[in-house]
């Protein structure tokens, strides 16, 4: 184990909080691995030992879990993890072209990190945003309706240190480590940033509004008025 004392102590403090969320300590392993990534930028061998120690598991049991899930990186990740969805629908809607463009632009292959440690590029599987295809995830924040040009522009902006806002997410794209800390269950105070929903998400509701379509009202004598009947202002 080779964390310095300060790092080790703060990891132990955070880990205790994570473990306390669950009836059984072992349930904390995924958030603890995210926590390790928030410190080391990947699941380091030290992190594996830390998690094993914390949960009373063997390192083999911990790496068995860590290597099962794709979000856990075995190499130091870039400050920005760029995931281009290339599952079928996004792929044909432009994901393939975006991925190819980024691959050339960054000069790296799937899973690699640029020499300056800034970007890791990867092909990712469907990220549940198909109505915004093609989709890119930067540090697991949504970048909807992308094009090769917008993807390159994103890289340029990040390289230039300009703030970049995800389509549906916080005002400014956090770093990989910062977001990993959120995934470990430690809020970063940015939940109230960003829109309620994106454009595609509300199309059905808007169409219904436009056409005057609605679900039947709750029968009289219900416990409360149906929801959403007042304050209809939409963004």
């Amino acid at each position: 184990m080779s964390y310095d004392t300060g790092t080790r102590q703060s990891l132990e403090r955070d880990a205790a909080q994570v473990v306390a969320r669950y009836p059984k300590p072992r349930s904390a392993i995924l958030p603890l691995l995210h926590l390790v990534q928030s410190v080391d930028g990947f699941v380091s061998p030290d992190g594996i030992e830390f998690v094993a120690d914390t949960l009373g598991m063997t390192t083999s049991e911990v790496s068995a879990v860590a290597t099962f899930y794709t979000q856990f990186k075995r190499q130091p990740n870039g400050t920005y993890n760029l995931g281009v969805c290339t599952t079928a629908l996004c792929a044909i809607m432009g994901g393939d072209a975006i991925y190819e463009r980024l691959r050339e632009y960054l000069g790296i292959e799937d899973g690699q990190t640029t020499g300056d440690g800034m970007f890791t590029l990867e092909r990712i599987e469907c990220n549940a945003a198909c109505d915004y295809a093609p989709v890119m995830m930067a540090n697991w924040e949504f970048f909807d309706n992308q094009t090769p040009e917008s993807a390159v522009a994103l890289v340029d902006a990040l390289r230039a240190g300009k703030p970049v806002a995800p389509t549906r997410g916080p005002d400014k794209l956090p770093t990989f480590k910062e977001n990993e800390r959120v995934l470990a269950g430690f809020p970063d105070g940015k939940a109230d940033q960003g829109a309620s929903a994106g454009e595609s998400s509300v199309r059905g509701a808007e169409l219904a509004d436009e056409k005057g379509w609605a679900a039947p009202p709750y029968p009289a004598g219900g416990a409360a008025a149906p929801k959403g009947t007042k304050g209809e202002e939409r963004k």
């Binding site: 380091s44 063997t58 083999s60 790496s63 290597t67 075995r74 190499q75």
Partner: peptide, 25 residues
């Protein structure tokens, strides 16, 4: 449990936490 299934799918393998074998830096 000194060994476990490591990795996933067709890349799965039996092993310990062996950083080199599993590609951990």
């Amino acid at each position: 449990p000194f060994i476990g299934l490591q990795g996933r799918g067709a890349k799965e393998q039996i092993g310990r936490f062996d950083p080199a074998a599993l590609g951990f830096e």
